[in-house]
């Protein structure tokens, strides 16, 4: 089993345990039990929740790190696409400038 598989299985088991310990059935089973048993169950639930938080954070950290690794490619793609848009803007700008220039030339020639 890989580390990832062990971690996933552990997390699945923790979640299953956590849901059992927060279920109505669990609470009903604790009715009438001694203070020692009830307090022991409370501490166990707390520790299960803490372990779940830690493992889930580790899982999200791993995913986050892989996404961040992929960001360079996304940024490059965005830059390239924006450059293509800029080139179109420049073409239009240049053509409009030529039209304005020709209009000026036309006025000069007609005056001459």
């Amino acid at each position: 089993m890989t580390d990832f598989e062990i971690s996933t299985q552990t997390l699945d088991q923790l979640r299953e345990t956590f849901l059992k310990m927060t279920s109505p059935e669990w609470d009903l089973a604790l009715i009438g039990k001694s203070e020692e048993v009830v307090n022991g169950a409370a501490m166990a639930l707390l520790l299960v929740q803490r372990a779940r938080l830690r493992l889930e954070n580790a899982e999200l950290t791993e995913i986050r790190d892989k996404l961040v690794d992929n960001e360079k490619g996304l940024e490059e793609g965005r830059t390239e696409v924006n450059k293509a848009l800029d080139r179109l803007d420049q073409i239009e700008g240049a053509l409009n400038a030529i039209t304005s220039f020709l209009a000026i030339v036309g006025r000069v020639i007609s005056l001459a």
Binding site: V81, N82, L85, L88, I91, E92, L95, N96, I98, G106
Partner: peptide, 24 residues
Amino acid sequence: ALGALAESDKPSQIGAATEGVVQA
């Protein structure tokens, strides 16, 4: 950005600008 390039009306605008040059 991808959508902006795909939706860009630049072909029409540049086409019109080119017509403007020839008319000038």
